[in-house]
């Protein structure tokens, strides 16, 4: 599969602050790449670099194979983007804003405006001035602008901010549809990890400007797997037994004394039997599935902020 974006040692420095450090990343055609990270992790910086709004301090990236800055500018005609807040002319109506961008992108025919506005559900309110729109509608307008002309690559920075629950579902379905039917490549960052989990096919975990890990959805699912939470009367004795008798070292003792056992190789009964056979009482036990959020928290050692 063709590499749409390939970053090598990409670094962005703002005076003394390192926004992005030595990031290596590959996005292939047709992928939905989810950028996961806390505030200040470098997600927006990375998207801004791809969109040509800022330039790398070190390292490089290719966009549709283009390496040079001028060549990348040409390739950006094949992209659509919403980075931070969607950009539009507040004084113009929704339809006029679309016309403004249709001309800017050099898209022939005005049929595309009707089609795109219908896609994002703004056709009925096309005569409304952009400045009077709600946050959710502004977000939809931003998406319509980005989608116009069916770009091959979509860069979306927190695109569901301000959307109501039905808007979030519509946006998710729309992005999935575009990805499946048009093979559109999407790079998306979101704070709402549960939402990202339903959409992304590949994940990149950023923390303090560093790329911690890059995983496919399948790899993530395998890594997350099941884990067992067990609450016992004597935690210290139990973990000694766990290590010695079951040779299991992949566990975590939470602050409240709960033992979380990862990488289950045996039936859950074996872990409860270990306690009961050695005179340790069991207060509770449950089998759980790791979510993207749990995984993110585990690799960033709990995270500094809510992701």
């Amino acid at each position: 599969m063709e590499n749409i974006v390939e970053a090598k040692n990409l670094t962005k420095r703002y005076q003394s602050c390192m926004a992005l450090q030595q990031v290596n990343l590959t996005v292939k055609r047709g992928e939905i790449y989810g950028l996961v990270g806390a505030n200040g992790a470098g997600k927006t910086t990375f998207l801004k670099l791809l969109a040509g709004q800022i330039f790398p301090s070190e390292g490089e990236f290719t966009l549709f194979g283009a390496h040079q800055q001028r060549a990348q500018e040409k390739q950006r005609m094949r992209t659509g983007a919403i980075i931070e807040m969607p950009g539009f002319v507040p004084q113009l109506t929704i339809e006029q804003n679309m016309e403004y961008y249709r001309r800017q992108k050099g898209i022939p025919g005005d049929r595309v405006i009707e089609d795109t506005l219908k896609t994002v559900g703004l056709w009925e309110v096309r005569k409304k001035r952009a400045k009077t729109l709600s946050l959710g509608m502004k977000q939809r307008l931003g998406l319509a602008i980005a989608l116009m002309g069916e770009p091959e690559l979509l860069l979306l920075d927190e695109p569901i901010n301000g959307l109501d629950p039905s808007g979030i579902i519509e946006m998710r379905n729309l992005l999935k549809k575009l990805n499946q039917e048009k093979n559109m490549t999407i790079i998306i960052s979101s704070h709402i990890l549960s939402e990202l989990e339903q959409l992304a096919t590949v994940y990149g975990f950023l923390d303090k400007g560093r790329m911690l890990e890059q995983l496919s959805a399948r790899q993530l699912h395998e890594k997350c797997g099941n884990y067992l939470e067990i609450v016992v009367t004597d935690v210290e004795k139990y973990i000694v037994l766990l290590e010695k008798k079951l040779q299991h070292k992949d566990y975590l003792v939470l602050a409240d004394g709960t033992v979380r056992i990862y990488g289950l190789e045996k039936d859950a009964v074996a872990y409860s039997a270990l306690a009961s056979e050695n005179g340790i009482g069991i207060r509770g036990m449950s089998l759980k599935q790791n979510s993207l959020e749990d995984y993110y928290m585990s690799i960033t050692k709990g995270g500094r902020e809510n992701a």
Binding site: R76, M77, T79, K105, L155
Partner: peptide, 9 residues
């Protein structure tokens, strides 16, 4: 508007 124009090449 300027950042959009940049993003569109």
């Amino acid at each position: 508007l300027m950042k959009n124009a940049l993003a569109f090449g």
